[in-house]
Amino acid sequence: MTAYERVLAARANGRPTGQAYIEQIFTDFIELKGDRRFGDDPAVLAGLAFLNQTPVTVIALEKGRDLEEKVRRNFGSANPEGYRKALRQMKLAEKFNRPVICFVDTSGAYCGLGAEERGQGQAIAENLMEMMALNTPILSVLIGEGGSGGALALSVADEVWMMENAVYSVISPEGCASILWKDSTRAAEAAQFLRLTAQDLLEFGVIEQVISEENGNFSAVCAHLKEKMAETLVFLSSLDNNERLDRRYARFRRMGGGAV
C-alpha cells in the first residue's frame, strides 16, 4: 500500500471509530460529559470503563458512524471545550489512580470562529503541558487520522500505538501539497514525503507499536489489542510515579530529528 492509500483507508467511511473499540475492549462504559467551563463537545467521547477488572478512563476523539452522528460530532474535530473535557477526565483519573486510554481519530482540531474565540491554541497547549506531568499511566492509540496538534493533544502518553492503517502527520497531505505546489490534487505525492504511515513512525521511534489489522475481523483485532493493553498497563502501573514521568519526558525528549 502507498502512503496515500493508507490515508484513504484511515479516512474510509465505515472504518471503526472510537465507540467500536470501546464496545469491543471494555465493559460497563459510562459516558461522562462536559468541561465544566463552557459546554459539552460531542467530538470527544469520554467516560469510565473496566478493562478486564481494572477501572480505567477512556477518551476518544469520535467522528461518528452515520451522517447524522458525524454532523453532531463535527466529524471528530474538537473545539477547545473538547480538549478541556478530556483534561478534566484525565485529572479525575489522576485523582483516583486510574490509567487513561485515548483513542485518536481526527483530521485536526476544529478551525472555526468559536474555536479561536475560546482559545483552541490555549486548550491544546494546556493538555500538552498537563499530560506531560499527569501522575497516572497514559496510553494513546491512533486508530484513524492523526491530524496534527488536534491529535497530539490526546497523544502525550507513556506509549503511543498506531493501527496499521492509521496515519499521523503535522499537516494533511492536501494542505502540504497546496503549500508546496499550490495544488492540493498532488496529495498522494505529498503523503509519500510526509512519512506519515504507522510503519514510518515506528522506524522513527515516534510510536512503540503497530497493531495489525490483517488476518481477522474487527473483534479479533480488538481481542489482540485488549491483551496488549492489559499487559502494558500492568507494566506502566508497576513503575514508581517519578520513574514513569521521567520515562514519559525522555520519550519525547529524544525526538530530535537529527538536530543535536
Partner: peptide, 22 residues
C-alpha cells in the same frame, strides 16, 4: 510547526511543553 520536518516538528510541541512544565 515546520511542515518540511513532518512528525518531528509536531513532536517538538510535546517536547518543549514538557520542559516548560518542569
Amino acid at each position: 510547526a515546520r511542515m518540511q520536518e513532518g512528525i518531528f516538528s509536531l513532536m517538538q510541541m510535546a517536547k518543549v511543553s514538557g520542559a516548560v512544565k518542569r
